[in-house]
């Protein structure tokens, strides 16, 4: 398997009532740039992205994979209410910005990217789906680096519903990385998956698979959102991680990550 490394991770969460001006200030401080003509959804994406380490040094041939569960709901709803209740026309900028892939455009434009750019929605695991797409392309030598993220206006966390974005940067360059992806496999059943030897690994599973694996392993950590384990990755707390998540009713993924220094 081609060597693929995790270079960095990032997370940005805010409350639904956080003023956009505050978020723009935060973005200006991390990016050094002022952004115009962006709506809240795009702002959420950029605010998280610019927390990735060394993001401004990203190679222009880096591909972008952005997942979302719901997309740009708030601004779209606002435009629809303006049209139907106030009989107003959609403003051109607001109309263009409401397209879910416009976050990809602004990210690509800011970083000067010229490679693939994908926006997908997945009901249960938007980040994990985008991660799988990116990994598949890298494994097939379609590029040498990628940025994978998820942007949503309603993210259920232990501290209530937030909005924000979370990101991971993958690369084939081994310099300054926090983990190495040793393998990625898909299984149609847990019986099949647990034929794989996971001893000496720290098993981390997403909540939707938690109940299914209880009979197979004794100790595991579960996460609600993938960003719950970002700190673990950044601090390199475990040596080898078996990351298990479900992409569909008949597909369970196992991603083994070497997180040792």
């Amino acid at each position: 398997m081609r060597n693929i490394y995790i270079q960095s991770t990032s997370l940005f969460l805010s409350d639904n009532n956080t003023p956009q001006s505050d978020m723009k200030e935060e973005l200006k401080s991390t990016s050094g740039q002022s952004f115009r003509r962006i709506n809240r959804y795009i702002l959420l994406g950029l605010a998280g992205l610019f927390r990735l380490a060394n993001i401004s040094k990203t190679n222009k041939l880096t591909s972008l994979y952005v997942g979302t569960k719901k997309g740009c709901v708030q601004d779209t709803t606002e435009i629809l209410h303006q049209m139907y209740k106030e009989k107003l026309l959609p403003m051109p900028f607001a109309f263009i910005a409401a397209s879910a892939n416009m976050a990809n455009y602004h990210i690509a434009n800011t970083l000067g990217l010229q490679s693939g750019s994908y926006t997908i929605s997945h009901e249960y695991s938007p980040f994990e789906m985008a991660f799988k797409m990116s990994l598949s392309d890298l494994l097939e030598f379609k590029g040498d680096s990628s940025i994978v993220g998820c942007i949503d206006e309603e993210i259920s966390t232990d501290d209530g519903v937030k909005n924000g974005s979370y990101w991971i940067k993958l690369t084939t360059d081994s310099q300054a990385t926090i983990g190495k992806i040793i393998s990625y496999q898909e299984f149609s059943t847990f019986d099949e998956l647990f034929k794989t030897d996971l001893s000496d690994m720290s098993v981390i599973v997403n909540d939707s698979t938690k109940e299914s694996i209880e009979s197979f392993v004794n100790g595991y950590t579960n996460y609600k959102n993938i960003f719950d384990i970002f700190e673990t990755l950044e601090k390199q707390e475990y040596k080898t991680i078996a990351l298990i998540f479900r992409l569909s009713r008949s597909k369970i993924s196992l991603c083994v990550i070497d997180s040792s220094r």
């Binding site: 997309g71 397209s99 750019s117 994908y118 926006t119 997908i120 789906m129």
Partner: peptide, 17 residues
């Protein structure tokens, strides 16, 4: 339908993607 279920939304290239 039980394998991968994905919605692509990238304006005019959505279903081509």
């Amino acid at each position: 339908i039980n394998l991968e279920v994905i919605f692509f939304t990238s304006a005019c290239t959505s279903s081509a993607n």
